[in-house]
Design a binder for these strands. Structure first.
Lengths: 337, 337
DNA sequence: TGCCGCACTGTGAACGTTCACAGAGAATTC
DNA sequence: GAATTCTCTGTGAACGTTCACAGTGCGGCA
């Protein structure tokens, strides 16, 4: 094909080249059944010949559909982008949407300015749906979203809005139970936990699961809080060691925090797993690269992402409601417990 | 709740509400100087009042601009998404583009089907520019891109096309020199290296820098190759230890591979840094969480991303050519060397 | 035979912008 | 005082689609 730098071919050009009308070309391109085989073939040939590609702007002007979905990151972005889970989500979502020829645009909603931009973008009708990542219950974006009546789905439950915003998520609570039980079964007596932020479903539900097994009262003194960052894992571990020097196991709410905890344990001369068993959560890449390798709970993140996208596409396709999806976790024994 | 099916306000509504014409509203909105202060105020008020947001589809239909940039990942996606550098790039690019109200669309070009989708998207004129991530010289996408004559900029040089596709990148070669010199200065005598893939600028240039300091001939036997993955770092380290048991330092082309190398060294009973010094490259998050902490070379990734975006925006704004940007690296001493 | 429905096609009118143009006053120049 | 510029404004015509509508033959059926 000649590399002519001319005007992009339009549907008119295809119509002319194939000897049919605009309308027929449009129908042929959009799979309308009322197109003769002859016309269809002619259009196909003309499209190949001219290198025609539909102009989405023109199309969405009349259809009111954009073929675009926004992924909104409503976390202070540094934290989120550092999260190894995030890249899995992004990767899977990109692929799944691409299969349906839907473009994924990324937006960050860290501060008010960002948020305003997101809302403006959505209000402008530039996207058919929203994929929410790690939204907090208090996030003002959620309210604004509802006012827009645009399909929205969350990856991981949005605490306090479970019935409002559909989601797909791993079964955090059951996963935490698995780990707690595993530690108990190994004969650990003083099992502490480091939680994620309690305004996130992971933070809250993993603590709940932990308490389910060990009893809420029994663990009262054995809880420390982190924010999923490595640093916070270190701080929480120090705090626990100071408070409960004779603990013999700790369930940490994320692998990254667990990596921090491991470092502190080593620094304080505790052997892992001999003196203290450590359990993580996520089974992210880092779990295989700590020393010792981290026993953790695997979240089926790829599935979570796949299901999240599926839910969103269903809503966009006109479904009135969709069922939330909760996926099973799996304990992955390695060396730290 | 009443399903108010309210039409989105258009520029006509704003015109009516402010008592001026479409044209004046458009001018006011786009910063045309020929608008009276009275008209400007009226338009502003009407916009606020109606909640008007410009319809990008309609605008781009006439302007031929989309306000969208595509980030193309031309790596088998698993590998790329695992790369901690990637999230930095993504984060910074998102923010910088958002500041200019440009949307960022993510696309993966792993296989032929993906690539065809990307080209179709671009040929359809759905984006004003392309941000290339980790493109290889042999990538067929590059050729197709040139035929499209759409502004494109790479993050990191594209080997073999340095003069064709503008880029911003860290000074890999000088960074490698810094590390090599650092190891020499510490009295290391047998310094090996594990490279990244030699069809990437990082792989090639870091090896070049290493050779600059130690002499190409002298290190001939001391080179092993990896592919930036942790696993390949382990394999390369094993190979080196088998081949050169008395090596006393190794410069590894990425932190992730260095983490793998550290694990193998421990497994083989070598103490780090006493027996073997280990130097990494990237200063990614993992560098602080290995044991011992990794001495590495910091790439100013945020700046690289910022500059890449700047170059692209300049091209989009009509610049005919732009200068490549090469940014200085910095050695970060920690515990492994 | 006449009528109706079926399969397919072409045409005009949106969709919501921007842009080029023309025109109206006011200000400036000669 | 007329001519000229300068500022500001409104209007019609694109941009490239899809959609609704109005055909046109053609075959089947009463």
């Amino acid at each position: 094909m000649p590399v002519t730098n001319k005007r992009r071919p339009t549907i008119h050009d295809v119509a002319r080249a194939s000897g049919v009308s605009r309308g027929t070309v449009s129908r042929a391109l959009n799979g309308d059944p009322y197109v003769s085989t002859a016309a269809l073939a002619a259009v196909r040939r003309a499209v190949a010949e001219t290198g025609y590609v539909v102009n989405r702007a023109a199309r969405s002007l009349v259809t009111q559909r954009t073929g675009t979905v926004v992924m909104v990151l409503s976390e202070p972005q540094e934290k989120l982008f550092e999260d190894p889970n995030f890249s899995v989500l992004l990767r899977v979502a990109t692929r799944r949407l691409a299969q349906r020829d839907v473009a994924l645009v990324m937006m960050v909603a860290g501060d008010d300015g960002d948020r305003e931009r997101v809302v403006r973008y959505l209000r402008g009708g530039h996207a058919d749906g929203v994929l929410l990542l790690s939204a907090h219950s208090g996030d003002p974006l959620l309210g604004e979203l509802e006012g827009l009546s645009i399909p929205a789905v969350a990856c991981g439950a949005v605490l306090g809005r479970e019935g409002v915003i559909p989601y797909a998520a791993a079964d955090d609570r059951e996963g935490a139970r698995q780990m707690a039980q595993y530690l108990v079964d190994q004969g650990r007596k003083k099992i502490a936990t480091i939680t994620g932020p309690l305004d996130t479903p992971g933070g809250l539900n993993r603590l709940e699961g932990f308490c389910d097994v060990l009893g809420r009262k029994a663990v009262k003194k054995l809880i420390a809080h982190g924010d999923y960052s490595r640093h916070s894992g270190e701080a929480a571990m120090r705090e626990l060691l100071d408070r409960v020097p004779d603990l013999d196991a700790v369930f940490v709410g994320s692998d990254l925090m667990a990596a921090g905890a491991l470092a502190v344990l080593r620094e304080r001369g505790r052997r892992v797993p001999e003196d203290v068993a450590v359990g993580g959560f996520d089974d992210s890449a880092i779990a295989g690269s700590t020393h010792p390798k981290l026993t953790t709970v695997r979240q089926p993140l790829e599935q979570v992402a796949t299901e999240t996208v599926r839910l969103l596409l269903e809503l966009i396709d006109g479904a009135d409601t969709v069922e939330n999806v909760v996926l099973a976790t799996e304990l992955v024994p390695r060396d730290s417990a």
